[in-house]
C-alpha cells in the first residue's frame, strides 16, 4: 500500500508518497534527496535515542545520554528500558561508554555531559 510521509531533509517538508510494492517508488518529492529519504524511511527507519540516567556522587541527579548512532525505530522502547536500568557514579566525561552494542545494533550508549 502506498504510504504518505513528510520529508524532513529540509524545511520545505514535501509530502512524499512511497510505494513498497513498486520497489519503494517515491513521488511528490521536489529534489533527489527526497527519494533517498523516502526509501530509507520505509525500508529501515532509524533514530538516535537520547535520554537521561541516574547518577550518584554529584550535584546533578541525572546525566544526559545518547546512542552514538541511529538505531532501528522499532527498538526505541526496548532501548529506553535498558537506559532506565542504568545507575552511574560520578565523575563521568562526555563520550564515556555506558553500554556497548545495545541490542546487537552496534550502537553504544554514551555520556553527553561532564559531571563531577
Amino acid at each position: 500500500m502506498v504510504q504518505e510521509i513528510i520529508c524532513i531533509v529540509c524545511p520545505r517538508g514535501c509530502h512524499l508518497k512511497v510505494d513498497p510494492e513498486n520497489d519503494y517508488e517515491v513521488t511528490g518529492n521536489s529534489c533527489p534527496r527526497g527519494v533517498t529519504y523516502g526509501k530509507a524511511e520505509l525500508k529501515n527507519p532509524t533514530r538516535v535515542v537520547t535520554s537521561t540516567v541516574k547518577i550518584k556522587g554529584a550535584d546533578l541527579k541525572r546525566c544526559p545520554v545518547k546512542t552514538d548512532q541511529p538505531i532501528p525505530k522499532a527498538k526505541m522502547q526496548e532501548v529506553m528500558q535498558l537506559i532506565n536500568a542504568v545507575d552511574l557514579e560520578a565523575p563521568v566525561r562526555v563520550g564515556d561508554v555506558i553500554i556497548e552494542n545495545i541490542l546487537d545494533t552496534e550502537a553504544k550508549l554514551v555520556v553527553c555531559r561532564d559531571i563531577g
Partner: peptide, 19 residues
C-alpha cells in the same frame, strides 16, 4: 535540551545540547 540536532550548521554534525 538533551535531544540531538544541535550544531548541524555550525559544526556540521548533530550534537545534544550539553555536548
Amino acid at each position: 535540551c538533551i535531544h540531538n540536532g544541535f550544531g548541524l550548521h555550525y559544526f556540521k554534525e548533530e550534537l545534544t545540547g550539553p555536548e
